[in-house]
Design a protein around this nucleic acid. Sequence first.
DNA 1: CATGAATGAGTCTTCATTCAT
DNA 2: TATGAATGAAGACTCATTCAT
Lengths: 225, 225, 225, 225
Amino acid sequence: MSSTPESAARHRRSAGFSGTSTPRDLPTTPRGLRTRTKLVEAARVVFERDGFLDARLVDITTEAGISAGSFYTYFDSKEEIFSAVLAEVEEEMLHPDVRQVTNGDDPVSMIRKANRAYLESYQRFSKFMRLLEQVASIDEDFRELRRKRGESFVQRNAKSIRQMQQDGVAGADIDPMMAASFLSGMVARAAYSRFVLGESWTIDEMVDSLTELWANALKIETPAS
Amino acid sequence: MSSTPESAARHRRSAGFSGTSTPRDLPTTPRGLRTRTKLVEAARVVFERDGFLDARLVDITTEAGISAGSFYTYFDSKEEIFSAVLAEVEEEMLHPDVRQVTNGDDPVSMIRKANRAYLESYQRFSKFMRLLEQVASIDEDFRELRRKRGESFVQRNAKSIRQMQQDGVAGADIDPMMAASFLSGMVARAAYSRFVLGESWTIDEMVDSLTELWANALKIETPAS
Amino acid sequence: MSSTPESAARHRRSAGFSGTSTPRDLPTTPRGLRTRTKLVEAARVVFERDGFLDARLVDITTEAGISAGSFYTYFDSKEEIFSAVLAEVEEEMLHPDVRQVTNGDDPVSMIRKANRAYLESYQRFSKFMRLLEQVASIDEDFRELRRKRGESFVQRNAKSIRQMQQDGVAGADIDPMMAASFLSGMVARAAYSRFVLGESWTIDEMVDSLTELWANALKIETPAS
Amino acid sequence: MSSTPESAARHRRSAGFSGTSTPRDLPTTPRGLRTRTKLVEAARVVFERDGFLDARLVDITTEAGISAGSFYTYFDSKEEIFSAVLAEVEEEMLHPDVRQVTNGDDPVSMIRKANRAYLESYQRFSKFMRLLEQVASIDEDFRELRRKRGESFVQRNAKSIRQMQQDGVAGADIDPMMAASFLSGMVARAAYSRFVLGESWTIDEMVDSLTELWANALKIETPAS
DNA sequence: CATGAATGAGTCTTCATTCAT
DNA sequence: TATGAATGAAGACTCATTCAT
């Protein structure tokens, strides 16, 4: 859609992402493993370029340099290979920096660092994030999967907030779970606006603004500054 | 996706939502007008039930009780009828309550009222909002269209913030545009989490929490409290 | 057919059963011989379970515990391994009881014994008989092959009938060849009804009834009864 | 199979014949009805020529002179159109002669007439009968369907036999149901041998022989002849 | 204006068979 | 011999769109 008439949109309803699909075993031989890897990488390229819906299996196999039929040696459906791509990207997202927010910092610095890290990661994976958004809007199973993962992230944030409340740093009358959820949502949404919708803020501006809003929202006392 | 496995690929050459489509004139005869109305209503039902992608034109015409061929008397494509549905729903969203602009209230009350109004509207149109989300994730033109509309909303909010800053009610060091954008995004995201993803917060809880976060974020001084 | 809807078309270029296929030599090494045997046994299991059409070569090699490619070391096609299975089963069908040709008996007893032997054999190989029926209905060459084999069986029966006529035991006005053919057909059909279609007669009932019909049909005089 | 290598054999497993398929309504418009009829007739030609398995939907639509996609306007699968062909042929088989065996005749004449009628009908529909045999050997649902229909035929014959026994015309020690089943089977098998396998008997010979065997088998007394 | 049958481009999917290791 | 990954020909099926009535 949206594009030149010769790029036809294609859509499928099918296997679903989570519930039904039993991820099949990795191939045993090195050659098989190599081909599978080629496929997943090709799929990522094609998905990020064309979106999930417009991506045809042929495009993926062509990009991978293998025959169309070979696809089914490794995956049963577009959904299944998407899951594989997702797994790959998640791995990649976690590895580089161990995401350990240095604990010695003051609360606002920690928030700032977390916000910056999030935005930078989002930027780096912006094409994939758009893809993620699309798939989530299409597939309920996947939406649920994603919600659950987000939840644990929110939990951690809520715990921090609770800690700050006990330390007398954050406002006591704030519901930690909802605040964590809403403020995380705010940052996520801002990243989406910037890197998917194309708003023209700089990352620095965003970090400053988001951090201030976040800190204010929690009524964090910045003791000596 | 996520649904019956026996269904299969859907193809089409997209007409696009905004750029290309010239919304055609309304039919002149009363009969034609009636048929068009039936079609738009049917389309809304089908879109909200099946999503944009899985909705087939046949489903729409069947739901409308007219023949498949008649569709093209009124619309050129699925995208075009979707636009018509969108227009219809927007009208419906604005009409009922004239968006009570109770100006006499204090800032926090106004924010609270706006938040509540937004959430209630979102709830009432939640099926449509999910649909909107899907179409936005699929179609770039539509995404852009939506962003622009959101912008004017954000502008208005930014103006309010600027006003409050001049009145000394809100923190002066805050960037009004970004704050407006991010805080609106927070509320929108919360509504999505609640009414599309199915989080189990009550609306009252949400209004309280969002309003407090919003007011704090702007460092709004509540004079007599 | 009649089975899972998600399975789909099977294609192949037929090798044919009889005419074309030159049964290749048995492998020379003991290891090769063992593999071939495993394949034939596996093929029988799969054929009897899934039918000729739905049996995939992969199923057969998997059942045999060997790799897909190895199939072609021993056979050129599904038809060819089917022929091998057929040969194996025929051997098995003949060996066990040396087809007791109790010549001393009176005609009716002989007929009874033959009928019982036939039914019992059919029962023991019922799964294979169903398979045979399927392949015959699919492949003309095989149908012809089968017809020829049946002919010699009918010839033998015709000879018996002719003998009985000369002995004055059977009606003289009966055409021995046709009678032999039709009555054998009757028994074969009865067996098919019982063991493939699932009619619920006991074997004893069937033997009694078939024997009486057969003896009556030939107007066999039962001397001392 | 069995044929020249360029005629490829194709096989499907799918919808099944009876249980699952809900025969859809006949088209309402004359045009639609005409097309459906063309399709069914084309299907019969193709099925009888190529067999059920080798018949491709394209062959059928081509023979009918319509586009491939139009097939699905009327049928969901090859099985479904086969059922339609079956219905058509059955209608045709019953109409011509009202199959009323003149009741005034003596038993043997009646049997002779019935046998002749059966053989002539089989001959006329021999191509279809071979097809029927094939489908029955492939699809269990259809096999069961066919068995049930045969049963009522056998029931009627059994009733005749019982009547003859009461009239003292047929041997009293014969089981009517089994006799009816086995003797009908004999005739059916003979017809198959002649018209499908290609035995070279004349119909007259067959009628004579089958009638004699049948009458003898039931020990029918031919009073004054 | 309405109808609904007809079209055909486009994609998926299977599996016998080949072949490099 | 054995392996199992790679191939590619073949057909089924969908549905937006057209068009004769």
